[in-house]
Design a protein around this nucleic acid. Structure first.
Length: 665
DNA sequence: CACCTCCAT
DNA sequence: GGATGGAGGTG
């Protein structure tokens, strides 16, 4: 098809015709021939011409969480606060012109009956995050845990409701869903005449399917193939203002003319989209009735387009983007709103060519863009043309692969002791979250622990270390590891001005049989099946939450309580114990009663005693650090009674004592 | 593996 | 902007 034959007849924009058509010609493969082989194949992956992907995201998710938690009515304007900033604004509140990044007081001015909820926080001296009246960023730490849990409920419900679909949780409030497989089944079920290659088919299985039904209906809003020009667009639509992502053209009216013959004709892919849309609609309805979350979804041929389509109508909208509607949907789109182009790359593109829309960039050849932005920018080139080969990866129920607890310090800290305080707070949160996750997946183990800190205006720096497996991950265990990293990263220079601290676990995974339990790590004994069962029992026991009074108290107070707890638990009379040469404290393993592990033999017990010793020594280490830091002439310090060394910095490299313990044995 | 950069919500 | 999370690059 030449551009001549496709040129719209309107003469008003004559002269632009060629350029416009050039852009349309960039969209290829919008109408692939679909054959019997295609419908009957199972594993075509991203090449599948019948591929259908949806993106479903929760509307104003944090706000919705709070509305459900508090049982407020859907039309009650509500915002969620983090310190003085709005992090979520429900749609009722948006009607008052309130938006994120308004300040609290501005929002209340616009809507006096606004419900203002501050996000849950950890508060010094409290066992768990909660909703307090007196939030203070100087003493509290935000907790997003409630939202994470609600998010997991939604994802779990999608998985339950959509068997055969791949479900990829993309963020706390979004999931991609690949409907290809169930849609193919339903397609064959509804249209059995495409399930068998006719004997007279000219090319056998490679013959095109017969024409699809013309009477297709779609649940949801179909993005128009030919959007009306802005002038004639009906305004005041039921759901309020059009979202920003909705196409709106200011120029080049010819854009909306017919550019492909029969581009409105239904294709088998359209039928596939409508089936997926139906399934998506039902699932969203269930999420709404069962969990109370309103969502918006987009359905299209790949992840990128599904995501864009989802923004077409919100809230509580569902939009279907057909292949035929892709060009007119993409061409006017400001490309910096596209996923991956919202950052530096998008900015670079905009500046390199002094343009802003997808259509503008369609003039750039692949060679040109690769010359300026590198070989890999082919994916940008394709993205602009509606092509996205990325797959929907069901990461299983596996929780996240990392856990980050972070705190921006309103007043940069200058004392190391403050650093240790915050590390302890962050460690307490990580302990809570990891142990929590272990209730669902008992053997979770973070491979490394990472500390990030930012000094003043410098870029953040980080230090990391392996995180030895421990069945029982305590606040101290984490805080001590974090404190060592702090020492390496920040030291105790008096000039420190640390403005942000982040403590995280990475490489979280289920520890497999071959990997290190504490026994394995210490080479005493491979983990037995029995041991794993016990571990599971312990993880499911009453322990996790009840032990959380370790959270966010001062270091020494907290430690005392932990130690006391362990001492109290010690009724086993095992005879195997460790007496700290420094403080005379006696460490013994717990009895078999939950929540501590039970031991089958002396070696297990010895391992655990060793772990206790390690923890204990680490505690002394941290204590010494703090004493050193708060001492008027920091740097002087003595480690009495320790066989291994008295140099702070080398502590990590030397035998930790626990190794010796086992070597000796 | 250690550390950093970029992107996103 | 703050609190998270994921991917990927580089030595």
């Amino acid at each position: 098809m030449s551009s001549e034959s496709l040129a719209p007849k309107a003469s008003a924009w004559k002269g632009k015709g060629k350029a416009v058509d050039a852009r349309y010609s960039q969209f290829v493969d919008l109408y692939p021939v679909i054959t019997y082989r295609h419908v009957l194949s199972q594993n075509l992956g991203v090449k599948d011409p019948l591929r259908v992907v949806a993106l479903c995201d929760s509307d104003a998710f944090y706000a919705a969480c709070e509305m459900n938690r508090l049982g407020v009515s859907p039309d009650q304007p509500l915002v969620v606060l983090q310190w003085d900033s709005l992090i979520a604004v429900n749609y009722a509140a948006r009607k008052f012109g309130i938006s994120r990044m308004d300040k609290k007081n501005d929002a209340i001015k616009r809507c006096p009956h606004l419900k203002v909820v501050h996000v849950a926080t950890y508060k010094e001296g409290e066992a768990e995050p909660g909703y307090w009246d007196d939030v203070d960023t100087n003493t509290h730490k935000v907790s997003l845990d409630y939202y994470r849990r609600e998010s997991m409920k939604i994802a779990a419900l999608f998985r339950e409701l959509l068997p055969g679909c791949e479900v990829e949780k993309a963020s706390i409030d979004e999931a991609f869903i690949d409907f290809t497989k169930p849609v193919r089944e339903k397609l064959l079920e509804r249209y059995p005449y495409i399930a068998n290659v006719p004997s007279d088919a000219p090319m056998g299985a490679d013959s095109p399917l017969p024409s699809p039904p013309v009477d297709w209906e779609v649940k949801g809003t179909v993005v128009p193939v030919h959007p009306p020009p802005p002038e004639t667009k009906t305004d005041g639509q039921e759901e309020g203002k059009q979202t920003e992502a909705s196409p709106s053209l200011n120029e080049e009216p010819g854009l909306f003319e017919l550019h492909f013959e029969d581009d409105d004709a239904t294709t088998w892919h359209d039928v596939a989209l409508s089936i997926a849309s139906e399934l998506m609609m039902k699932a969203r309805q269930e999420v709404l009735t069962r969990l109370g979350y309103s969502t918006s979804a987009g359905v299209s041929r790949n992840k990128f387009l599904a995501k864009l389509a989802a923004s077409y109508r919100k809230p509580n909208g569902q939009s279907v983007l057909r292949n035929s509607a892709i060009p007119n949907y993409l061409i006017p789109m400001p490309f910096q709103k596209i996923r991956f182009l919202g950052g530096k790359l998008g900015k670079a593109l905009a500046e390199a060519y002094d343009v802003s829309t997808v259509g503008d960039l369609l003039h750039i050849s692949l060679e040109e863009i690769q010359r300026k932005f590198g070989e890999e920018s082919i994916w940008v080139y394709e993205l602009l043309r509606g092509i996205d080969r990325s797959e929907v990866k069901d990461k299983g129920t596996t929780l996240t692969k990392s856990m980050l607890a972070s705190k921006n310090l309103p007043k940069p800290i200058t004392q190391a002791s403050e650093g240790y305080h915050w590390i302890r707070v962050l460690a307490a949160e990580l302990a809570l979250r990891l142990n929590d996750a272990r209730q669902i997946s008992p053997n979770l183990w973070p491979k490394t622990i990472v500390l990030h800190a930012r000094k003043g205006y410098e870029a953040g720096r980080s230090k990391q270390a392996p995180f030895p497996f421990a069945k029982e991950v305590t606040v101290d265990y984490i805080a001590n590891a974090g404190s060592k990293l702090w020492k390496e990263l920040v030291g105790n220079t008096s000039t420190m001005k640390v403005s942000s601290v982040q403590l995280s676990f990475t490489g979280i995974d289920v520890s497999e049989a071959g990997q290190k339990t504490i026994e394995g790590f210490l080479r005493v004994k491979p983990p037995s099946k029995r041991a794993r069962e016990e571990e599971e029992a312990a993880a499911n026991g009453p322990g996790v939450l009840s032990r959380l009074h370790q959270v966010a108290t001062t270091s020494s107070d907290n430690r005392t309580r932990v130690e006391e707890e362990q001492a109290e638990k010690d009724t086993s009379g095992s005879g195997l114990s460790y007496t700290c040469p420094k403080c005379q404290k006696v460490l013994r393993p717990s009895p078999s009663a939950a929540p501590g592990p039970a031991f089958q033999n002396g070696e297990d017990r010895a391992s655990f005693v060793a772990a206790l010793q390690l923890e204990h020594e680490d505690w002394h280490f941290a204590q010494d650090l703090m004493r050193e830091d708060s001492a008027p002439n920091g740097g002087k310090r003595i480690v009495p009674g320790q066989t291994q060394g008295n140099k702070t910095k080398k502590r990590k490299k030397e035998a930790t004592g626990i190794e010796k313990f086992f070597m000796k044995k």
